[in-house]
């Protein structure tokens, strides 16, 4: 079931690109952001968009165990053995940044059980604007905010908005109803992020998750190149 570890095998520490047997591991992409911004819905949409082309698994970090994992299961975006929930002891940011042990164990277990995998999405528990993923856990991170959370969030910045490899501004269809100025959000985001990309999405209309899925495809192409 498990791989043969010899004594002189290099310790498989977090960000190593190779698995203990020498094969290249899956690309790991983290999705963080405030509660209710649409992280789980984005993960579900990404799975639907990419699952026919790539071998995918998901790790969820619920604040309350298994809610997000069960949403994904109910919506049958992936078979159950490809979804694993990690408990975070009331501190979701700790589990993705300061002590990533349980998440690393989950990604390794998924690769052992259902691999080889191309992509593992690691969804953080809903947290605040300072939550970011450790580079020891993920290769790239997406920060998901939404227009209903206030159009001043890009201006406020914070590590998630400022440094994430992709900023997703979700629920654009709600902008007229909550008085959010998408143009202002785009300008503020660019001021904070410089060249780093921003995707505006509405998962319920238009092209849906496509801008995010395209970005993930580009990262996958770069990872396997």
């Amino acid at each position: 079931m498990h791989l043969d570890h010899s004594h002189d095998t290099t310790t498989a520490v977090s960000a190593d690109a190779a698995r203990p047997d020498g094969t290249r591991r899956a690309l790991r992409i983290g999705l963080g952001g405030p509660v209710g911004s649409g992280k789980t819905a984005t993960v579900a949409a990404l799975c639907r968009a990419l699952r026919d082309t790539f071998s995918i698994a998901v790790v969820t970090n619920d604040i309350y165990t298994r809610e997000d994992a069960e949403f994904l299961l109910r919506n049958a975006v992936l078979p159950p053995e490809r979804i694993q929930a990690v408990e975070t002891g009331a501190c979701p940011h700790t589990a993705i940044r300061d002590d990533i042990s349980a998440n690393l164990e989950a990604v390794e277990d998924l690769e052992d059980a259902v691999g080889p995998l191309d992509l593992i999405l690691v969804e953080s528990g809903g947290d605040n604007l300072t939550a970011t993923f450790s580079k020891g856990l993920v290769d790239a991170q997406v920060f998901v905010i939404d227009v209903a959370g206030g159009d001043d969030i890009p201006r406020k910045g914070g590590p998630g908005v400022t440094t994430a490899d992709l900023l997703v501004v979700n629920k654009t269809d709600l902008a007229p109803y909550v008085g959010s100025d998408l143009g202002r959000m785009a300008r503020d985001a660019q001021d904070q992020r410089g060249e780093l990309p921003v995707a505006f999405t509405s998962l319920t209309s238009g092209e849906g998750v496509k801008p995010v899925a395209d970005w993930v495809r580009a990262r996958l192409a770069a990872w396997s190149a």
């Binding site: 990690v86 408990e87 975070t88 002891g89 501190c91 700790t94 589990a95 300061d98 002590d99 990533i100 042990s101 349980a102 164990e105």
Partner: peptide, 9 residues
């Protein structure tokens, strides 16, 4: 803060 997973228990 030793990163060995104890925070979740």
């Amino acid at each position: 803060r030793f990163p060995a997973g104890g925070h979740a228990h």
